[in-house]
Simulated assay, not measured.
Amino acid sequence: MASILMIIEARIATTYLLEQIMGACRAHGVDHKVKFLNELQVDDITTDIIPMFVRCADPQVLSWAQLLADANRSYVYYIDDNFWRIIGDNPLAAYYRHPIVRKSLEFAVSHAETVIVNSPELARFVSRFNTRVAVLPTFFDFSLIEGVSPSFTEEIRIGFAGSPSRVDDLDLISPLIEPVLERFPKTVFEFAGVLPRGVETGSRVRFFPHTGDYDTYIKFQASRNWAIGLAPLIDHEANRSKTDNKYREYGACRIAGIYSNIPPYRNVVKGSVTGFLVENTTESWLDKISAMIESPEVRIKLGSGAFYDVKSRYELRLVSGEWANLFTKIDNDRSKNIKPLNKLKFVWNKIWRKMERYNIHLLVIYREGGVCLVARRIVRKILMRV
């Protein structure tokens, strides 16, 4: 049985999703464990396991990748975002632009036995660092929403759920919220995790706090009985490399979705059958939302069409075999000419990488809020250890 050690920086939606597919891979002869990067020890890297770094760009991953490469040990790298092309002046963008983070990311990607992605667009970009790229299918675990009943309402709820980093994409729809509310008295906008800039909450504009727990998040989405789900994406390289997660989630919940007409949605949404694709103009978004509000029959048709499409193509058990086959192949093809891990050299590298890590985080915090914010974060860290 192939044994995969998932190495993560934090528990986020991506890691929850990966644990779902890895759990399903067990039926195909692939086992897995999960370890945080900052808790990883040399003794965890036994000769019978294949490490899989998940979205890791922390300087510590550079030490681990160097250790494994020097010992001729195979490892996998999973990535579902184009970290090189994140735009904006937010802390996330500043972090991934830091030279040490870039160096760590690129070394880990370029020396991986296989880089796993879910997007052809991202595969083309990553191939400049490593030609051993596998595009594996995305998926949805329908067991997460079994028994969840949509709440009854006479409102026409229009929804979006996402992380705060999606605020720029919501600029595409923020100008049309007021016109829609004025024209259609039964409409309500609901935003979970992020609120469009310049939009105030009220009885018909609702905000729900972000949750890092994917199980809670998807159950919430399934229960809200959204008539229309929004999936705006500004057209730039980072967004074109994303996965089609909104389509899978809306489809699984029978929500009629409206999607920006760019990859990844252009590749999967069948126009007027499983959803609507629109150009990124206020007029196009307003016209399509208005048309869907006026036609409940179309909403039901699109929601049902998306449900059966997602069920037939993305159901977890259907795609897990393809993931398992890749891991089994990597396990079988591993080099037998491996060397012992150089623990002494690694210890010194790890200490140095930790210092770099703290310096990067302090710099990002300083850019976000100056000396005061740095001081507050340091005090909070000290108090947490007391």
Rank of each mutant, 00 (worst) to 15 (best):
R26I: 12
V273S: 13
I351F: 11
G198Y: 02
N332V: 10
L318T: 08
E121W: 06
V188D: 12
N130L: 03
V76I: 15
D44Y: 07
A108F: 07
G303K: 02
M355Y: 13
Q221D: 09
Y77Q: 03
L17K: 14
A222W: 03
T46I: 04
I289E: 05
F276M: 09
P185E: 11
L344C: 12
N337Y: 15
I116A: 07
A134I: 01
R26L: 08
I145G: 04
R97V: 11
S110A: 06
V269S: 11
D48C: 01
E294Q: 13
I351S: 10
F189H: 04
V268A: 04
A231Y: 00
Y314G: 04
A231G: 00
V188W: 05
R102S: 13
K311L: 15
V117L: 13
P164I: 02
D169K: 09
Y96K: 00
P209E: 01
Y214K: 02
L5W: 13
G275D: 02
I365A: 09
V148P: 13
H98P: 02
L105Q: 10
I255W: 04
Y314L: 14
I145E: 01
R380W: 13
A222D: 01
R97A: 14
K381A: 05
E146P: 06
H236A: 05
V310S: 12
F83N: 08
N325P: 01
D169A: 10
P51Q: 04
I49R: 10
K33Y: 09
I50G: 03
P209A: 02
T282G: 06
S165L: 05
V194G: 04
F307Q: 00
R299L: 03
L362M: 12
L105E: 08
H210D: 06
G251K: 00
T187I: 04
S143P: 00
L172V: 10
I228T: 02
Q41T: 14
Y366R: 10
I228P: 00
T131W: 06
I255A: 06
T138L: 15
I156T: 14
A252F: 05
D168F: 03
Y217G: 03
K350N: 14
T281R: 08
S127R: 15
K339I: 12
I378H: 05
K33C: 14
R317C: 09
E106K: 11
P264F: 10
V205S: 09
Y366L: 06
P51G: 08
L62V: 03
L40F: 01
C253T: 03
V273C: 10
L316P: 08
L341D: 05
T274C: 01
V273R: 14
E146C: 06
V180G: 12
R124T: 14
A13I: 09
S151Y: 07
V269Y: 14
E121Q: 09
V269H: 11
P263T: 03
I382Q: 01
E237K: 04
M355I: 13
G271P: 00
D141G: 01
L176K: 09
L68A: 01
L302S: 04
A94G: 06
K329L: 15
I50L: 14
K343M: 06
I218T: 05
Y265A: 02
S74G: 09
P51M: 07
P263V: 08
M6Q: 13
P296E: 01
L233F: 00
E178K: 14
D44L: 05
Y265Q: 07
N245W: 11
K336S: 15
R376Q: 10
V126P: 05
V371K: 13
K288G: 00
S203N: 10
V386N: 13
R367V: 10
Y16Q: 07
